[in-house]
Structures are given as structure tokens and as C-alpha cells.
Design a binder for these strands. Structure first.
Lengths: 129, 129, 129, 129
DNA sequence: GTGGTCTAGACCACT
DNA sequence: GTGGTCTAGACCACT
């Protein structure tokens, strides 16, 4: 389910984080469901265990997953909106950069909204499956 | 005009690139206008000249600014959309991450579109000024 | 394998770029093969690591080599022709200058073609080895 | 007749040198013909006089033009092949780089020869005019 | 150990 | 004065 692009400029642990988030949003990973252990995951996606571990730790810090000692790692129960200030600021910043780059690429706001709609529909649609 | 955030995870030269793009889109920097020299800019934003130089070189590669040997660096004449494939792919990727993160933060697509509209209006509005 | 000419008018990082390209075309460096690390190379050819790094980054931009984070730098898999417009224009310009200079040196087109044949045979021959 | 590209990475004085050589090879400038003075040329092509002067000096060093005190600058009489070792070596080096880059761009030797033929025909054709 | 970023500062070609 | 190149060397993220 998770595909790593070694040539990507974004670090592998970031790719893992993003893709796990996406799998949860799409409903592939359900609330309370067990994630593969660090070692399993490290074998599945052929990546150093330290890298997987780092991704899990960050996901836990963000409240996306939960680690139960000796039991394993699970998708957190409350996947409700978490409006942490820091995260929100980062998001607004990213959104602004997207607007700038879109303008440079000559993409108008209608096209942009269409694409965003599509992506978000895909993600929300996932929860029905 | 340009403010560097030393604590930001994105490198200083990237911050310079993004902010110069923004200043151009907002119409603060006009076509053909001279940018501060590498040394001036380096003094203004308190950053090493090499770092400014790296940002200028990348902006030149992207066709945003132009360098005239021994004369200086200028905002490029044609700021027309450049649909380079690679850049477009990066953009689509960034857009997708924004959609994912928005979903996580509980921001619906209507809110997202409103914010994007605002940013893009600000940018386009700048060219009239 | 790589020899830097400090008196050459072309910058050191350009010399590195050209010679690595040549080594690949001659088949001395094979697809997927690891290049010396920035530090190793910098020691081998007695040049500052930053200069080697600059050469590697430009080679990556051109798709000649690939960087895997924390792992190293490798000869890219597909060394297929890349017909980027900009690069092609630069090439045509260089070719024209060669024609002009040849005429000045009294070299006729038959001789020129013979030399080019030789060089290209050498390069293509390298991939068999 | 001479067109300067201020955005070109090759310096203006080099562009002047190359284009004067080309004009001579094409027969636009004839042996013994007077060149515009440094000031005239500087006005014609809108370039700093120092830059023109530098180009003329280099052309004189190469034996392409001759300066007669108080009279002006003229296309040299003997435009016969001058096989200076240094120049020849530089040329062979440039030719080699052309071969390497052509291979990278996927241009075969037949195409390369066709282009070279064309360029050289244009140049030689010029002497008939 | 790997490449990426950055500083401080020198030197150079070009205008 | 302008940008381009290079050195020497530090620090950092990533694997």
C-alpha cells in the first residue's frame, strides 16, 4: 500500500507519514486498526527500521496513531479535527505557497478549486468504502 | 521587504526564492526592474552573499529573473506561465498534500477555496497597483 | 580518472561535469554504479567539497546521476536521450562556433567529420567494454 | 550586422569576436577592409567601448585583424590557415565536448555531419557573394 | 557515512 | 560595482 520514492527530495519518513495519513483518510486503515510493527513495515516497504520508527513517532506526536506498550501501534480513535496552532500556521503557509506557484504556472482559481475538489472527494469517498 | 525565518525548516535560499516570486506577483517588483545586488540583498536580509547568489541563480533557471553580466539582476520581461512538466508535477504533489492536511485539520473544501481565492486575489490585485 | 586543469578557462565544476559524462559514455562508469562520495571525490581530485557538490547537483538536474538521501550518488538508470529545448539550443550554438573556428583553422568538413566520427566511435565503443 | 545577446552566458566581447570572424568568413567583411572604429562600433551595437576594445585586441592577437596607428583597424590580409598549437588544442577539446554532448542528446554522427556541412556551406558560400 | 545548507571571505571576469 | 567561482570548514537531516 505504501510506495517509497527514493529519488524524491522529501525524506522517506515524511513519505511514510503522508501515505499513512492518506490511507486513514481513505478508510483503508480504520480507527483502532493495528498498523504493521516497525519491523514488519520496514520489511514491507524495504526501508531502514529507524526510518519507520521515526515516522511512527511523528504520527504519534500528531495524534494520528497510538502506541500501546507491548501490544503494537494502532490508528488513533479520535481522528477528529485537531486545530493545533502550530500545525494550522504551517498549513496556511503551505496554502499560500500553492497560490503563488499556481499563479506562476498560469493556473486559475477555478482549475485549482476543481483539482482540490477532486482530491478531497477521493479522500472523503474513501471513508464510505 | 524580505523576511528570513531562521527557524523555518525550509532553507533560507528557498525562502528568498518564494518571497521574491511573491513580490513580483504582487506587483511590488515590476518587470525589468533591478533587484538589489547580491551584496546589497545579503546586507539587507543579513544572510551570506553565497546564499543570496544561490537563490538568484535558481530564480534565473526558472526564468523569473535575468542576469546581465556586470550589470545586475533584473525581473524578467515575460512573466508568462511556464508549464514545465517537472514543475507542474511538483505542484500537483503539493496540492495533494494540502488536500490531505486540510482534511486532517477539518477544513472543508468550501473554506479551502475561500482562502485560496483570497490569496490569489491579493496576488492578482497586486499587478494593478 | 578525473583530471582538473586549474589553468583552464572553464570552471572546475564544469570540468568535473564534462569528465563524468565522458566516463559514463565510455562505459567506465556503469548505470546504477555508485560514484565516489562528495568527500571522496573532493580528496581524489584535490578540490573543495562544495565544488564537487555543485557538479553533482548539476549532473542530477540533467538526469545524468541520481542522489539517494543518506546513501550516495549513482549513475542514473535511463541514460536515454533527453531532448530538452534549452540544452539543444546551447548545443546548436556550440556546433556553429566549432564550424566557424574550423574554417578559420583551415580544417575542411571532411577532416572535421573524420575526427567527430572517431570521438563518437570511441564513446559508443565504450559501452561494449 | 552584429547582434549582442545580453542574456547570453558567454561574455559580450566573445560574442563580438565570434561574429566578426563569422562576417569575415561569410565574405561580408573583406580582406583589408576597414572595421568601424572602437567608438563607432560601440555606438552601433550599444556596448561599452572598453568591451569593443577588448574584442579588437583579442582579434588582433589571433591575427584576424590589424591595427594601423592613426588609421584604424582592418581585416588582416593573410586569412590563411594559422595552425597555432594552442588554438588547435582548444579546438580539438571543443570538438570532443561537442561529440560528448551530441551523444547525450541522442544525435547520431550522420545528423551531426549534416548540420556541420550546412554551417560550413553557409560560411564558404559567403565568400562567393 | 551521505549529501545539503550555510557562513566568511578571497579572487576573478565583465561592464 | 556586478555576479560567478572557489576555498575552508561548520552544522544538519537522513539512512
Amino acid at each position: 500500500m505504501i510506495v517509497i520514492n527514493e529519488r524524491s527530495p522529501s525524506p522517506i519518513y515524511e513519505q511514510i507519514i503522508q501515505q499513512i495519513k492518506e490511507l486513514i483518510l481513505r478508510g483503508v486503515l480504520l480507527e483502532g486498526e493495528k498498523l504493521p510493527s516497525v519491523r514488519e513495515m520496514s520489511g514491507l516497504i524495504v526501508v531502514n527500521p529507524n526510518t519507520v520508527s521515526k515516522a511512527y513517532q511523528e504520527l504519534e506526536r500528531q495524534g494520528v496513531i497510538e502506541t500501546l506498550r507491548g501490544k503494537g501501534t494502532f490508528v488513533a480513535k479520535q481522528q477528529s479535527p485537531r486545530m493545533e496552532k502550530e500545525r494550522m500556521q504551517k498549513f496556511r503557509e503551505a496554502l499560500k505557497q500553492v497560490a503563488i506557484e499556481a499563479t506562476y504556472l498560469g493556473i486559475d482559481s477555478a482549475q485549482l478549486q476543481k483539482w482540490l475538489e477532486e482530491y478531497m472527494m477521493e479522500l472523503r469517498g474513501g471513508t464510505d468504502a
